[in-house]
C-alpha cells in the first residue's frame, strides 16, 4: 500500500513533467510553435487596443545590437551589407538624427552622441497608409501599421511619405542575403516594401515583441496605450517623454525617455 502510493506519486510527477514538456513545444515532431488560441481573441475591436512602445534611451547601451539581431533574425530580414539595398526594421541612429528638430545647442555632449533606437512609429495618423494606392499598408484595429506583402505593388509611395525613414524596399531578392531562416516567419520577395510589424505574430501568441524580450537593459516597455492601467501608460504619465517629429501630426506610438 505504502509502496503503491509512492509509486503513484512518482509516476504522477514524471507524467506531469512530460505533459508540461509537450505543452511547451518540446515535441520534436512539430518544429513549429504552438498557438495560444485564447490570445487570438477573434476579430479585434477597432480602437480598443493601441499597441505602443516606450524606449528608455538611458538604459540602452551604446554599441549593443541585441534587439536588432533578435528582430532581424525573427523576421528573416536580409543583410545585403551595403547602404543602397539595405533592409532594416529596427536600428540605431544618433540623437540628432532621430530628433532633428530638437535643440542641440549647449546640450550635454553625452546626449548628442547617444544612440537612439529607431523603428516604425506605428503612427495613429500614418502618412504611409494615406499614400498607399492599394491599401497594402494599412492600420490594423489594434493600431499596428501593417503590411500586406501579397498586395504591395512596389510603388514606394509609402517610403516617400514616411517622415521617419522606417520603410525598406526589396531592391533585390532577399533570400540569398538571409543567413539563417526562421521557419515560423515568411521571408519577403523582390519588389515589395517592408518594415517593423510590432511583432504582431508574437502578440498573437501572447508574447512580447522580440526587441523587448531580447533587451539586456530592459530599456523597452511595450503595452496598450488605450488601457489607462497599463504599465506603459503609468510610465508615460510619470515621466517626461518625447516622440519623433511630433510637429508633423503623425501621433507616433513609440515614445522615448531621454
Amino acid at each position: 500500500m505504502k509502496q503503491d502510493r509512492r509509486e503513484f506519486l512518482r509516476k504522477a510527477g514524471i507524467g506531469a513533467l512530460a505533459g508540461i514538456g509537450a505543452l511547451a513545444g518540446l515535441n520534436p515532431l512539430s518544429a513549429l510553435e504552438k498557438t495560444d488560441m485564447s490570445a487570438l481573441s477573434g476579430k479585434p475591436v477597432p480602437g480598443r487596443t493601441r499597441w505602443g512602445m516606450l524606449i528608455d534611451t538611458r538604459s540602452c547601451t551604446d554599441g549593443c545590437r541585441q534587439c536588432v539581431t533578435a528582430c532581424h533574425r525573427a523576421h528573416n530580414v536580409p543583410d545585403f551589407g551595403d547602404r543602397k539595398n539595405e533592409v532594416k526594421w529596427i536600428w540605431k541612429s544618433r540623437y540628432e538624427q532621430a530628433f532633428p528638430t530638437s535643440g542641440t545647442q549647449f546640450q550635454k555632449p553625452e546626449l548628442l552622441g547617444r544612440e537612439v533606437l529607431t523603428l516604425c512609429n506605428h503612427c495613429a495618423e500614418p502618412p504611409c497608409t494615406r499614400a498607399c494606392p492599394t491599401q497594402a499598408t494599412f492600420k490594423r484595429r489594434d493600431g499596428i501599421v501593417a503590411m500586406d506583402y501579397h498586395r504591395c505593388i512596389g510603388c514606394r509611395f509609402c517610403m516617400a511619405a514616411c517622415p521617419y525613414g522606417s520603410r525598406s524596399f526589396n531592391w533585390l531578392d532577399p533570400r540569398p542575403a538571409i543567413s539563417e531562416y526562421n521557419r515560423e516567419f515568411p521571408t519577403r520577395e523582390r519588389g515589395v516594401v517592408e518594415k517593423c510589424n510590432f511583432c504582431s505574430e508574437r502578440l498573437a501568441r501572447g508574447l512580447q515583441p522580440a526587441c523587448v524580450e531580447s533587451c539586456p537593459g530592459k530599456a523597452i516597455t511595450f503595452g496598450d496605450l488605450n488601457d489607462p492601467g497599463s504599465t506603459i501608460r503609468r510610465m508615460l504619465s510619470e515621466q517626461e517623454t518625447m516622440q519623433r517629429k511630433p510637429e508633423l501630426g503623425t501621433l507616433p506610438s513609440v515614445f522615448y525617455i531621454i
Binding site: L23, M37, S38, S41, G206, D227, S230, T231
Partner: peptide
C-alpha cells in the same frame, strides 16, 4: 509559462489549443 514577461499587458492565456 503563464506569467507575462517584462511587465507588459497581453491577453490572458488559458488553455492551449491542439494544433497537431
Amino acid at each position: 509559462m503563464f506569467s507575462p514577461g517584462g511587465g507588459a499587458e497581453t491577453a490572458d492565456r488559458a488553455a492551449v489549443a491542439e494544433r497537431d
